[in-house]
């Protein structure tokens, strides 16, 4: 009886440990990884083909792009219950939540559209025509600019979030996948999967200021395909997933030089940091696992089996 009570009293603690949420594209589930134990503690069913995943800024709900269900699902992260769906346009792949915590900017991959949804009224407030196969989504820290990258048009589209109109289009290398503003809002980084590069734009002038190439010994250059990336604490280093090259590159954000390549699982897609950014969790699509990287030593320390084709990753602190 006493043991029972003890176990029960431990439960709230367990629920409070930070977690990494991983969408499994071909299992229609989310795997929840406990950061303390590095184990999968929960597997939660979702809509069809879950890819993009992000938490509300207060972490009260989690948004999931259920691509083949043509909806963004809103889930209670405590219970794993789907609270409701948001209208998202067709085939939502990635999205970004505006700093106002109210507007989701969603890339509709099959429709060449970026949809803006008000998560409170649950209504579409704008649809913006963009290039073919929109994918990467980013919003500037001040909330003034949103970015959509389009994979076949090979552009970053700069959207004024006030007027919801495109204010600039900049060409990047083939098949842009992911976009991210630096913390100070001065730079925009865009990865190009087939181009094999990451382009860095000066946000003020919207001009390209640098381009990063990658080269891994023993890996054919065609297989070095940058996709997702994240910035380390203080924007000192970028960690760039290189897809079928099965490595994550560590890029110095001042010199734009690659300092290291870390071996991870097969076809690495996206990643998320632990709350103190000491650990990085990468989703490896083909091998169906998540690699845990120790950021300080830049060593992979564990791989965690998740569902089939893990794609997106998000931190729940």
């Amino acid at each position: 009886m006493l043991r029972h009570a003890l176990a029960l009293s431990l439960l709230p603690f367990a629920a409070n440990a930070a977690e990494i949420w991983v969408t499994n594209e071909k299992d229609d589930t989310i795997s929840v990884i406990d950061i303390e134990t590095l184990e999968v503690t929960r597997t939660i069913p979702t809509g069809e083909r879950p890819r993009g995943i992000t938490f509300s800024h207060d972490y009260s709900v989690v948004y999931i792009c259920a691509s083949d269900s043509d909806s963004v699902q809103v889930m209670d992260p405590e219970t794993g219950e789907i609270l409701h769906d948001l209208p998202s346009g067709e085939d939502p792949e990635q999205f970004v939540l505006h700093p106002d915590n109210k507007h989701l900017y969603i890339a509709n991959e099959d429709d060449a559209i970026t949809t803006v949804v008000d998560v409170e009224s649950r209504k579409v407030v704008a649809q913006i025509n963009v290039g073919i196969e929109p994918e990467g989504m980013a919003v500037s820290p001040d909330g003034a600019l949103a970015i959509t990258t389009s994979e076949t048009t090979n552009m970053a589209h700069w959207i004024d979030t006030e007027t919801r109109e495109i204010v600039a289009n900049t060409l990047v290398d083939s098949r842009p996948r992911h976009a991210e503003f630096t913390e100070d809002g001065a730079e925009l980084w865009v990865s190009a999967e087939i181009g094999g590069t990451v382009s860095i734009f000066d946000v003020e002038s919207k001009a390209e200021k640098a381009k990063i190439d990658f080269e891994i010994k023993g890996v054919h250059p065609d297989k070095v395909q940058p996709v997702g990336f994240e910035f380390a604490e203080g924007d000192t280093h970028a960690f760039v997933a290189l897809g079928p090259a099965n490595h994550v590159a560590v890029v110095n954000m001042e010199s734009y030089e690659v300092e290291e390549y870390i071996l991870v699982g097969r076809r690495v897609w996206h990643m998320a940091f632990s709350p103190d950014k000491s650990q990085l969790f990468t989703t490896n699509g083909v091998s169906g696992d998540v690699t845990v990287i120790d950021v300080a030593s830049r060593e992979p320390i564990k791989s965690i089996k998740v569902g089939r084709y893990p794609w997106g990753a998000a931190l729940r602190p």
């Binding site: 290039g131 073919i132 076949t152 048009t153 589209h157 289009n169």
Partner: peptide, 10 residues
């Protein structure tokens, strides 16, 4: 159609 969409931005 793919070209035309890209072209429309340029």
């Amino acid at each position: 159609a793919d070209n035309a969409t890209t072209g429309s931005f340029l």
